[in-house]
């Protein structure tokens, strides 16, 4: 098999993943795009491993490791997303901005966080009532 086939497929997949990471707004969709990128890398590694006839099988070993890393990342990542959703009631990347650099003076004071959480709780109540 021509090596260019898997290699081109891999880089195209990777680019699709890059597009997804940049274009998506929902955090879980971003995570899925990252998975696409990682899978592209896996295809690359397997193809190179077979091509090189590597006696150490570094490519396949690294592929297995990458798959495991991806699983670990997605597990932890979803836990984080759910945590954000629970406290902020959103899963959109660009709505999670409470910590940005604020150069304009904001008079909220030390407990702005508390206010945030209360807002979230209120929103939740409204949703439940609706």
């Amino acid at each position: 098999m021509h090596l260019a086939y898997p290699a081109v497929l891999a880089v195209l997949l990777f680019s699709v993943g890059v597009y997804g990471v940049l274009a998506r707004r929902n955090v879980i969709l971003v995570l899925m795009s990252v998975e696409l990128m990682l899978n592209a890398v896996n295809l690359n590694l397997v193809a190179f491993d077979v091509w090189l006839r590597d006696t150490l099988h570094a490519g396949q070993a690294l592929t297995l490791f990458t798959i495991t890393i991806a699983a670990a990342e997605i597990g932890l990542g979803l836990a984080i997303v759910l945590l954000v959703y629970r406290t902020r009631r959103t899963a959109a990347v660009d709505e999670v901005t409470a910590l940005g650099d604020r150069h304009e003076a904001d008079g909220q004071g030390a407990d702005d966080q508390g206010a945030d959480d209360h807002e979230a709780a209120d929103a939740a109540k409204e949703q439940a009532a609706a």
């Binding site: 990471v21 995570l31 990128m37 990542g77 984080i80 997303v81 910590l99 959480d117």
Partner: peptide, 20 residues
Amino acid sequence: DGRGAESALKFFLSSVTATA
């Protein structure tokens, strides 16, 4: 809490992308 979750999310997303 919300603040920690947000930090973790930012850290996580940018880090995973960098890893890929």
